[in-house]
């Protein structure tokens, strides 16, 4: 325990869902932007051999993946201070769920890396 240890609180439970909330946001963003891009004709414009549609989708995919991965570091730091009843279980579970969410984000969005966008 460090000097900053504190009892785990109800609000800390948000860490159990934070990772997958990012996954859900990323999933919705990629799916939604895909529809908007195809409707708005982003496929026609582009940069460096990539269509604007692809660039937007890649940004959403990589951005959410990075955000999900970035959650891990504050989580580990904050969870290390938790003590008392439930601290260990909530810490373990939150870390597992957060890592699972990052993997899920990488997996479900991966098709933007190689599939055609508007067919």
């Amino acid at each position: 325990m460090t000097g900053q240890s504190r009892r785990v609180r109800g609000t800390d439970l948000v860490w159990l869902v934070a990772g997958f909330t990012v996954w859900a946001a990323g999933f919705s963003a990629v799916y939604g932007l895909h529809a908007v891009g195809c409707r708005a004709g982003w496929e026609e414009a582009g940069f460096a051999g990539l269509s604007a549609n692809r660039i937007v989708l890649l940004a959403a995919y990589l951005g959410h993946s990075a955000l999900g991965a970035a959650l891990y570091f504050p989580l580990v730091r904050i969870a290390a201070r938790w003590e008392g009843l439930s601290a260990r279980t909530i810490r373990q579970t939150a870390i597992m769920v957060t890592l699972a969410a990052v993997i899920s984000t990488l997996w479900t969005g991966a098709p933007v890396l190689f599939l055609e966008t508007c067919r």
Binding site: L16, V17, F20, T21, W23, A24, F27, Y31, H34, A35, C38, T93, V97, A100, A101, S104, T108, P111, V112, L115, E116, T117, C118, R119
Partner: peptide
């Protein structure tokens, strides 16, 4: 917890035959 979230990302698999783009 993972199952609960992921289950919300499956709904279109009931609509695979509706002509939705391949990427989706």
């Amino acid at each position: 917890i993972a199952l609960a979230f992921l289950s919300f990302g499956l709904w279109v698999h009931h609509m695979f035959a509706t002509g939705i783009p391949h990427l989706s």
